[in-house]
Amino acid sequence: MKQILIVEDHAIVRLGIIRLLQDLLPMPVAIEEAATGAEALDRIASHPFDMVLLDLSLPGRNGLDLLKQLRRLHPKLPVLVLSMYPEEHYAVRALRGGAAGYLNKGSAAEELQAAAEKVLGGGRYITPSQADLLAEALVEEPQDAPLHRQLSDRECQFVSLLAAGRSTNEIANELSLSVKTISTVRSRVLEKLHLRSNAELIGYWVTQHPEE
Rank of each mutant, 00 (worst) to 15 (best):
L67E: 07
L70W: 04
R71I: 03
R71Q: 15
R72W: 00
L73Q: 14
H74A: 13
K76C: 04
L77G: 08
P78I: 04
V79C: 07
V79P: 05
L82Q: 08
S83L: 09
Y85M: 13
G97A: 15
G98H: 07
A100Q: 05
G101Q: 04
Y102Q: 08
N104R: 06
G106S: 12
S107M: 05
E110P: 00
L112T: 12
A114Q: 13
K118F: 01
G121I: 06
G122H: 14
G122W: 10
I126L: 07
I126T: 15
P128L: 02
S129R: 13
Q130K: 08
D132S: 07
A135P: 02
E136M: 10
R149S: 11
Q150I: 01
L151K: 11
L151V: 05
D153A: 15
D153C: 03
Q157N: 13
F158W: 05
V159E: 01
S160C: 01
L161G: 00
T168Y: 09
T168I: 06
E174F: 09
S178W: 05
V179P: 03
V179I: 14
V179W: 00
K180D: 15
K180N: 13
T181R: 12
K192W: 03
K192G: 12
L193K: 06
R196F: 01
S197D: 10
